[in-house]
Every structure is written in C-alpha cells, then in structure tokens.
Simulated scan of single mutants.
Amino acid sequence: MSLAQYALNIGLLVFILASNVGTREVTRRRLLQPLVLVAVAAAVFLRDVPTLGNDGRLVAVGLVAGVMLGVVAGLLVTVHERSGSLVMTAGTAYALLWVVVIVGRVLFAYGADHWFTGWIRRFSLENRITGADAWTAAFIVMALAMVVARVSVTWVRVARARRSRRHSAVAVTA
C-alpha cells in the first residue's frame, strides 16, 4: 500500500466520522452524497478488477463482508423525530465499527507488505489468487459495499419513520 493509499484510508475514516457521528437532520443530500462518492470511487479504483483464478471469488467475499458490515453500521444509526423533523444519530458503536474496519484494512495491507508477506503469497498461490491487485479490489469492493449497505439500511429506516409520521398525523386528525 502506498503512502497515498494510507492517507486516503485515514481521510476516509475522518470524513465518515465527521459527517455521520452525532445527530444530523435527514436530508436527501445526506442520503445521496455517499452513493455519489461510491460511484466516483468505483469508477476511479475499479477499472481493471482481476478475474483470473479465484480472484472473482475473493472480490465476492469482499462484497459479502462489506454488505454485512454495512448492514450492522446501518442498524447502529437510529432515526427518530426531533422538533418536527427526522434526524439520524450515530454514536460510539458506529464510530468504533468504522475505526475497526478501516484500521483493520490498513493493518492488513501493511502486514501483507511487512509482517506476513510469505503467508499471503502462499495463501494466494494455494487458492489461485493472482496477486495484490485481487486483494486490493476485494478490499475496495468491501469498502464501497459497506457504504451502500449502510445507506440502504438508513434509507429504509427513514422511509419507515416517515410512514409512521404520516399514520400518526392521520390518526390525530381523524
């Protein structure tokens, strides 16, 4: 992993925590912005995803792991009404999940280059993974899937809260 990639991961962590931890008003922009960023990141970083050997399976594992982690992240965001508008709140558990995932990804990349290079090489050979590009693609797909899944879960919770508000308003006026 290059210095720029380390910086990108740390920057991503700071952005996620700064823009999500705490209580924020639910807006269309708040829900769409992460999806736009994922689309841009996918276009930039996933141009040549390796598909030889079991590279596709490794990327699929990254996808599944990302979706699962994203669902957990989404469930750690509460959506509720405050002062007549919907807000979403993400706290310590949400922040801790993102820290563990991103720092874990950085430590894995560092370890693959410095601590357990031989193990990664052997594992890759034994499992027909063609190299570092496959691992990189799997981790990028995992990160992007995590964001999409988190936003999707939050979107569903917002829709439910809006539906509940409409039903409550109808009940009050009836």
Rank of each mutant, 00 (worst) to 15 (best):
M146Q: 07
R160W: 13
R160S: 15
N54Q: 15
G53C: 12
I10H: 01
R150G: 11
L76V: 03
V106C: 05
D55M: 04
L35W: 05
T154V: 14
V141E: 02
T23G: 10
S152D: 05
V59P: 01
I129F: 07
S19Y: 05
A171K: 12
R128K: 13
V49S: 05
G104C: 11
F15R: 12
A95P: 01
V172N: 08
V158M: 09
T27A: 10
G70A: 04
A93K: 03
A65H: 08
V67M: 11
Q5V: 15
A60K: 05
W115E: 07
L144Q: 00
G11F: 03
V40S: 02
V147G: 00
V99Q: 04
T173L: 14
R29E: 14
Y6R: 11
T130P: 09
R57G: 15
L12V: 10
Q33P: 01
E81M: 03
R24Y: 09
A161W: 02
I10Y: 03
V38F: 00
R122F: 08
A138W: 01
T89C: 01
A4M: 15
V172W: 08
S83N: 13
V14S: 10
R82Q: 15
V158N: 12
V59L: 02
S19P: 06
R24P: 02
T130A: 13
T51Q: 06
V100M: 10
F139D: 01
S19M: 11
V87M: 10
M146I: 01
I140D: 00
G91T: 08
T154Q: 10
R57D: 13
H80Y: 13
V40N: 02
A42Q: 01
A65W: 03
F139G: 00
L35S: 09
I129Q: 04
L97G: 01
T23E: 15
F45C: 02
G56L: 12
E81G: 06
V141Q: 03
V153N: 07
R122A: 12
H167W: 13
V26Q: 01
A90Q: 06
T154G: 07
A159V: 10
I102N: 04
G11D: 07
L125S: 09
A149G: 09
V147P: 00
L52C: 06
A73F: 00
A43N: 00
P34Q: 11
G53N: 13
A93Y: 04
I120A: 04
N20R: 09
R166G: 09
T117Y: 14
V38Y: 00
R122E: 11
A95C: 08
G118K: 11
R29K: 12
V158D: 12
L3Q: 14
L75M: 14
